[in-house]
Every structure is written in structure tokens, then in C-alpha cells.
């Protein structure tokens, strides 16, 4: 049996402090606990776990979070 190693994603997450309203939706959506809340704003806590699934970006109502999947660029 071979253990499938998840391909390491080369991702970058950018959060706009000015636009983030701290609604927690991104944190709620993230399947891998990449994001946390800090002083009322979303923050990246564990970038390495990010799979670039885009769920956070798709559902942030304020255009405050951008996920760049560099492997796709």
C-alpha cells in the first residue's frame, strides 16, 4: 500500500484589513483550519494546510480574502 502524499500547494492568501468586516464566514468555511479571527479580523494561521479549495474566497461577502494558487499561474 502506498501512502498518497498530498501535493504541496504553493499558495498565498491575502486579507484586506480595510475591507474585512470580521464576519467569520471564511473561518467557518475553511475545511482545514487555515484561518482564525484576531482582533475582529480574519487572519492566516496555518498556510501550510491550505489546499486552495477557494471556499473562503467564494463566500467572503466583502471581497476581503484572496487566495492565489501559484501552481496554477
Amino acid at each position: 500500500m502506498t501512502l498518497k502524499v498530498k501535493e504541496k500547494k504553493d499558495v498565498e492568501i491575502e486579507i484586506s484589513e480595510a475591507w474585512c468586516k470580521g464576519c467569520v464566514i471564511c473561518v467557518d468555511y475553511c475545511p482545514h483550519d487555515v484561518l482564525i479571527m484576531e482582533r475582529g479580523k480574519a487572519k492566516v494561521a496555518n498556510l501550510a494546510a491550505c489546499t486552495a479549495c477557494m471556499l473562503c474566497e467564494l463566500h467572503c461577502p466583502d471581497f476581503a480574502i484572496v487566495v492565489r494558487d501559484k501552481s496554477k499561474e
Partner: peptide, 15 residues
């Protein structure tokens, strides 16, 4: 930023 409240769903529709 959008005038909508924190957690308002309207921004998701806009996207």
C-alpha cells in the same frame, strides 16, 4: 468597502 453589514449575504450574490 461595501455598505452592507458584517455577515450580510448580499456580497456573496454580487460575487
Amino acid at each position: 468597502p461595501l455598505i452592507w453589514c458584517p455577515g450580510c449575504g448580499d456580497g456573496i450574490v454580487l460575487k
